[in-house]
């Protein structure tokens, strides 16, 4: 049965529901590839599983189902395999923690040399493999402009090994290696890397950020990336109920608050220049984002740290200014 392009009055949002839109999402389409099949072992409410499902299905849709996936070591690799319970319906390889971008370069080179230009390559990893241990390989892949889409599922710490700090862990966050003790509880301020900006500094054709709160936007960005050749980078915020200490049912709400507070700017960039920004629709103070997360509980307990919350608010404010995240004239 074919599609009926039904158009209703739209408000510029998707609140009226998938079926009412002229264009279905990849996930809502009957041709979705189910690249990561059910039966994997992700935690309830895992943002990474959700994000990977949407991202890889969108990449499949954007490549006419001609996709090879490379995976770094991490939660995604572990929960989606032990063989023979592999969830992967696409050709998939896992090599090491720190080399997914380079392995993807090799796969892309093999496809090129064999004249199989239709086959596209996606590499993926968590923030630990992307911002820390695999950073060198990622930078090399970017710098050579290899024909690879790299997706970072950023849950802001080493969740697979038990919630240790990475260079994507935000200030003040409690992790197993940045405990909320001492004079400056949690992760220190003034550290960490901004990977999307580092990616942009390589001058690669496409860089985008997204959250699992807006899966339509994620699908759009993946499909946009698949129309481009060369090195592309998508940095996806994926809340982790286990590591963040949030309710499994709150993953999407927390991701939305990350964006609406200004803590996680959502934008896209081409050749190092920002070309589009997802505006904050209902700005919230960072408290609204931090409070539901147990990793920040020490900021709001018996001895609250309003000055620390203010420092985090300042980070959000800087993001808002820098990326122009507020509509003209909005609060």
């Amino acid at each position: 049965m074919g599609f009926q392009p039904v158009k209703f009055y739209q408000t510029g949002t998707y609140t009226v529901g998938n079926r009412l839109l002229a264009e279905r999402s990849v996930q809502a389409g009957e041709l979705r590839s189910n690249s990561i099949n059910s039966g994997h072992r992700a935690c309830q409410g895992c943002g990474e599983a959700l994000g990977a499902r949407y991202a890889i299905d969108a990449a499949m849709a954007g490549s006419n189902n001609q996709l090879i996936a490379v995976n770094a070591t991490g939660c995604l690799e572990v929960f989606s395999t032990p063989y023979p319970e592999s969830s992967w319906q696409v050709p998939w390889i896992h090599s090491l923690f720190g080399n997914a971008p380079a392995v993807a370069t090799g796969v892309a080179a093999a496809m090129k040399v064999k004249g199989r230009k239709e086959v596209r390559v996606v590499a993926q990893g968590g923030d630990g493999s992307t911002t820390d241990i695999g950073f060198g390989c990622l930078s090399g892949m970017f710098e050579r402009n290899d024909d690879v889409l790299y997706i970072c599922y950023d849950n802001e710490a080493y969740m697979n090994t038990g919630v240790q700090r990475s260079s994507a862990t935000p200030p003040a966050a409690r992790t197993a290696t940045t405990m909320p003790v001492g004079a400056e509880p949690g992760n220190p301020f003034g550290q960490g890397k901004n990977l999307p900006e580092i990616a942009m500094a390589h001058g690669i054709p496409y860089v985008a950020t997204a959250t699992v709160a807006d899966l339509r936007d994620l699908e759009y960005k993946v499909r946009r990336a698949m129309t481009i050749r060369g090195a592309r980078y998508i940095h996806l915020s994926v809340p982790c109920p286990l590591g963040w200490g949030t309710a499994s049912s709150d993953t999407i709400r927390i991701a939305r608050l990350a964006k609406e507070s200004g803590m996680f700017p959502v934008f896209e960039a081409e050749y190092g220049e920002v070309t589009g920004v997802s505006k904050i629709r209902h700005q919230v103070p960072v408290e609204d984002y931090l409070k539901p997360q147990k990793r920040f509980a020490h900021l709001f307990g018996k001895t609250p740290h309003p000055e620390t919350v203010a420092r985090i608010q300042a980070i959000a404010d800087r993001n808002i200014r820098k990326y122009g995240l507020l509509e003209e004239g909005s609060n």
Binding site: I68, V70, I93, S95, L96, G98, N99, A102, V103, A104, T105, G106, V107, A108, A109, A110, M111, K114, G136, C137, G140
Partner: peptide
């Protein structure tokens, strides 16, 4: 490290 990793990807892709 990247040299061997690229070789791994290329070899696995045939």
């Amino acid at each position: 490290f990247a040299a061997m990793s690229v070789a791994i990807g290329a070899s696995a892709a045939g």
